[in-house]
Every structure is written in C-alpha cells, then in structure tokens.
C-alpha cells in the first residue's frame, strides 16, 4: 500500500545516526562516512516503493548502507592507489600533532585500527554484532547470507581481531 510506505524524512530522523556510525566504523574517515550516509538515504529514497514490509525497514536500510559503504570505500581506495602510482611516491600523511600522538594510545583507536585491517566482510559482521548490537538474524539479512554463516564468520572474525589487538591466547 502506498500510504503505508514510510516517509524518507522520517527514516532519516530515525536512522541517520546509526547509518553514520556504521559508516564511520567501517571507513574510519569522517568524510567517507558523510558521503556514505548521504548516498544511502538517496538510494533508499529511490527504492522506497520496493520496501514490502515496514517491519524490515531497519535491515533493508542497513543492507543499502552496507553496499554503499563497500562501494565508496573501494572507490576511495582505488583513487588513493592511483594518486600514489601517478606521483611515483606514497602520499604523505599529515604529521600528527603532539596531542594526537598522546591520543594515539587510546584504546578505541587501537581497536579501530585493528578493525580496519580486517576484510570488508569480517569488519561488517563485527560492526553489526559488537558495535551496533544487531541480532544474528538481522546481521544475516543485512549481509544477505544465512544465519549459520554469520555465526561461523563472526567467530572467525573475532579470532582475527583478537590476534590483531594482541589478545590472542
């Protein structure tokens, strides 16, 4: 029913923070997270009439966010690589200020950096399960895979992350 379709503004008010958090954890870049949030809601607006079940709006929106995040992050990565190749030297990162050096030791950054070294699929599973506290069923719908696969891959991803953080026993 057309009347039952939620308004995009309403969806935006409800979920834009969640989508932004997801994108920020996925890319660790404020700029990319903003791009992903914007793109996600524009895509959602175009596909809103395809939404059949209003109860599934959250997982539907996050599956769009996930696809958008993967696309944009990949595009940015390729762009960076091309710039690097064309200039024949690695792109210099901004020299950290003393305060940032102190902050570098913060735990959240250690975890975020470890998260960034994981594969896209593993990273999304950890974000959904541990940072956004979604259920296995919700994560399975977002990723478009079976629940068993989510469970299996989640344990594997966590083991990899622990190794990266240095908590592997």
């Amino acid at each position: 029913m057309h009347q039952d379709i939620p308004k995009i503004e309403h969806l935006y008010d409800c979920y834009h923070r969640d989508v932004y958090h997801f994108a920020l954890y996925y890319t660790n870049s404020k700029q990319e997270a903003e791009d992903i949030t914007q793109e996600t809601f524009f895509k959602a607006m175009k596909q809103l009439d395809k939404l059949k079940d209003n109860d599934k709006v959250k997982t539907w929106l996050f599956s769009i966010a996930r696809n958008t995040a993967v696309d944009i992050h990949r595009r940015q990565k390729i762009k960076r690589l091309i710039t690097e190749k064309l200039s024949w030297q690695p792109v210099l990162k901004e020299v950290p200020k003393p305060l940032e050096i102190v902050e570098k030791n913060e735990q959240w950054q250690t975890v975020q950096e470890a998260l960034m070294t994981l594969k896209s699929h593993d990273r999304i599973i950890i974000i959904c399960r541990m940072l956004k506290d979604y259920t296995i069923q919700e994560t399975a719908v977002i990723l478009g895979i079976s629940e068993v696969k989510v469970r299996v891959d989640f344990h594997r991803a966590m083991a990899r992350l622990r190794k990266k953080v240095g908590r592997d026993d």
Binding site: R17, H21, V111, L115, M130, R162
Partner: peptide
C-alpha cells in the same frame, strides 16, 4: 571483548 568494543563505542568523534 565487550570492554574492548565499549571503548570504540565511546569514540569522541562518533556523532555526525
């Protein structure tokens, strides 16, 4: 594990 992620949940630049 939960402690680890709690720290990341509280990252200062989290909000848009």
């Amino acid at each position: 594990d939960y402690d680890l992620f709690d720290a990341l949940k509280k990252r200062p630049d989290k909000e848009p």
